[in-house]
Amino acid sequence: MTEDDQVNVRDDDELLTIGAFAARARLTAKALRLYDRLGLLAPARVDEASGYRYYRAGQVDRARLVAMLRQLEMPLARIAEVVETGGAEGADLLAAYWAEAEDRFAGRRALAEYLRGRLSGRSSEMYEKFEVEIVDLPEQVIISETRHVLADELPRWIPAALGRLEEAAGACGGTTGAPFVAYHAEVSMESDGPAESCVPVADEAAARAWAAAQGRARGIEVKVEPARRLASTRISKAQVAHPQIIAAFEAVEAWMRREGWTYDGPCREIYFADWDAAGPQDPVCDVAFPVRHTP
């Protein structure tokens, strides 16, 4: 070890009072106490008699890093993970968090633009791009998985649930139609539905045997859905994203009111394309409402 290294070690090991450390880290003593309470930055030593906190000079970089990560509104658990990991791996964790944050902001920006359109009376213009038609569906046997989920959980739960059901369909005579998700109540960031992922299958008896083996813990069910008439509009992969999909649902509802149709069951999203292979403008989903004609 060189003399310069010895000096640096001594400098890093220097114990500072909380006030002196706060000044060096360009933070407040209040912030340091908070970081300690949250488990993000503990003092190097706490005097048992006085309760005074002492920090090592070498903790300054960590203190500043924690402060800057908090400015990104990063959850405390993820801050701890980034700080503890450090290096290139810590940088990758930060990049992953920021990509998620940008996606959330993009969704909020799109929602703000959508709401501006509604508030300024341009709803009808937004609805014009959706072509609505009536589609008749025959009676079908459905295997389904129902769960209470919030809106931000849907992108993970829907493909996972439909994947499980489509795999199970092999033991139920195979699929006989496009998988879909039915919404029995509002799903948003404040309301958790429930939502029901559904796959039509060929063999009712086999489906009931499969469901009995699964039990009801996962919300598994088999039902015979009667023939239905749907008011439906087709949307692209880009339009499935929130809040664009809200406009599609509202466009169908506006069309129903104009044409004299009323609700006859929970609304649904019907997925008919390979999601991974589809481009942003490729049609992948029908937004639909079961309807009956108003007398």
Rank of each mutant, 00 (worst) to 15 (best):
G177E: 09
G177D: 06
A178I: 01
P179E: 06
P179Q: 07
P179W: 05
P179S: 06
F180I: 01
V181D: 03
V181M: 01
H184I: 00
A185Q: 00
A185C: 00
E186F: 00
E186G: 00
E186T: 00
V187S: 01
V187I: 02
V187R: 03
V187Y: 02
V187A: 00
M189F: 05
E190C: 01
E190W: 02
S191I: 00
D192Q: 02
D192Y: 01
G193Q: 00
P194G: 00
P194D: 00
E196T: 03
E196K: 03
S197C: 03
S197Y: 00
C198T: 07
C198Q: 10
V199Y: 06
V201H: 04
A202E: 09
D203M: 05
D203Y: 07
E204H: 03
E204L: 06
A205Q: 08
A206M: 06
A206Y: 08
A207M: 04
A207D: 04
A207H: 05
R208W: 01
R208P: 02
R208S: 02
R208A: 02
A209C: 03
W210A: 04
W210E: 05
A211Q: 07
A212K: 01
A213P: 03
A213W: 03
Q214I: 08
Q214C: 09
G215N: 04
G215M: 05
G215W: 08
R216K: 03
R216N: 02
A217T: 03
R218I: 01
R218L: 03
I220G: 05
I220E: 09
I220P: 06
E221I: 02
E221T: 07
V222F: 09
K223W: 04
K223I: 06
K223T: 06
E225R: 07
E225Y: 07
P226F: 04
P226C: 08
P226S: 07
A227C: 06
A227L: 05
R228I: 07
R228Q: 13
R229S: 08
L230D: 04
L230S: 04
A231D: 10
A231C: 12
S232E: 12
S232C: 12
R234K: 13
R234C: 14
S236M: 11
K237Q: 08
K237M: 06
K237L: 10
A238C: 10
A238L: 13
Q239W: 12
Q239A: 12
V240F: 10
V240E: 13
A241H: 11
A241Y: 09
H242P: 12
H242N: 14
P243E: 13
Q244G: 14
Q244F: 13
I245T: 13
I245S: 15
I245C: 14
I246T: 15
A247E: 15
A248M: 13
A248D: 12
F249G: 12
E250D: 15
E250K: 15
E250I: 13
A251Y: 14
A254T: 15
W255M: 14
M256C: 15
R257W: 14
R257T: 14
R257Q: 15
R258W: 15
R258A: 15
E259M: 13
E259R: 14
E259Q: 14
W261M: 05
T262W: 09
Y263A: 09
D264H: 09
G265R: 02
G265N: 04
G265T: 03
P266H: 09
P266E: 08
P266D: 07
P266N: 10
C267H: 11
C267V: 10
E269P: 10
E269M: 10
I270V: 12
I270F: 08
I270R: 11
Y271L: 12
Y271A: 09
F272A: 11
